[in-house]
Every structure is written in structure tokens, then in C-alpha cells.
């Protein structure tokens, strides 16, 4: 299992976390190549279906990264994201997916080191969990 490189999809909001990842890049703060980012305008844009779809398409872990509470470019989009996240966490176990495979965090535009840390931590966590084997239930979108 030691050479298992988990695939991680991170949905990042355009204003803080995407910029935080840019800064991590500018500072050459490495993280595993299997961590891949998808830009959304706000963490509030992340539909739970995107998360489920990422697992279905082969992600072993999914992250949602947004602005710190109070800093959302759209006032409260991240608050909505947090609410959805809590619900989604509960739902995941019902699908037989360890809820550690989903992580929401706040990363500001200047927090390059934090960005590196949260993605590395997530990669570590998911590595320990091993590859995700989804059941037919998830494959069919929970129908």
C-alpha cells in the first residue's frame, strides 16, 4: 500500500483558496501531483453531486477549500458550503464511504503554507485509508 498515490480532487474558490494555491506555486511549495484543483467562483458553488461524482470518477479523496468565515467574496457562500459539508459528511457513511475522504477547509489567498499543509495532510489521511472502492450504489448515483 505504500506506493499508493491517492487521487484527490479539490474544489477551490476563485478568490481565496485558488489564489492561496497560486501563492504556494510561486513559493514552490510542493504537494503530490495527484492533487488536482477545480476552480469554482465560491465554495458555495460546490454541489454535493460534484463531490459524489468525483468519487465515482475515481477520486480517493475530495476537498472543498474556501475563504475563511467572514471573508467570502460573496458574503456567506462559505457558510452555505459548511452547512452542506456537515450534511454530506453524514451521508457519505451511508454510502459506505469513510467521511475522512471529504475535507472542507479555509485557505486565504496569502496562506500558501497552509494550502500546502491541508492538501498534504489530506493526501496522508487518504493514503492511510487506501484506495476507494465504491459500491454499485454510489456508481449509480445513489439511485
Amino acid at each position: 500500500m505504500s506506493d499508493f498515490n491517492p487521487k484527490i480532487v479539490a474544489f477551490v474558490c476563485n478568490w481565496c483558496s485558488y489564489a492561496g494555491a497560486d501563492k504556494a506555486g510561486a513559493l514552490k511549495l510542493n504537494y503530490p501531483a495527484n492533487v488536482k484543483l477545480i476552480r469554482v467562483m465560491c465554495s458555495g458553488r460546490v454541489d454535493p453531486q460534484f463531490v459524489m461524482d468525483a468519487y465515482r470518477e475515481g477520486a480517493d479523496g475530495v476537498m472543498i477549500l474556501g475563504c475563511h468565515p467572514g471573508d467570502c467574496h460573496y458574503r456567506t457562500g462559505n457558510v452555505k458550503a459548511l452547512k452542506r459539508y456537515k450534511l454530506l459528511k453524514k451521508t457519505l457513511s451511508q454510502f459506505g464511504i469513510n467521511d475522512k475522504r471529504l475535507k472542507l477547509d479555509w485557505v486565504a489567498a496569502g496562506e500558501a503554507a497552509l494550502f500546502q499543509k491541508v492538501v498534504n495532510d489530506m493526501a496522508e489521511t487518504v493514503k492511510e485509508l487506501g484506495p476507494l472502492h465504491i459500491t454499485g450504489y454510489v456508481e449509480q448515483g445513489g439511485k
Partner: peptide, 22 residues
């Protein structure tokens, strides 16, 4: 302003966030 939070919430897929559609 295009945050797309409504699109993530819409149960019928009616709300479409331009450039970031489902």
C-alpha cells in the same frame, strides 16, 4: 454576482451558473 450558491442548491437543475454549469 455569480457565486453559484443557488445553482448548487437548486434541486431541479434549473439554476445555471454561467461558465460553471453543472
Amino acid at each position: 454576482r455569480g457565486c453559484g450558491t443557488c445553482a448548487a442548491t437548486c434541486p431541479s437543475g434549473a439554476a445555471k451558473a454561467k461558465y460553471f454549469t453543472d
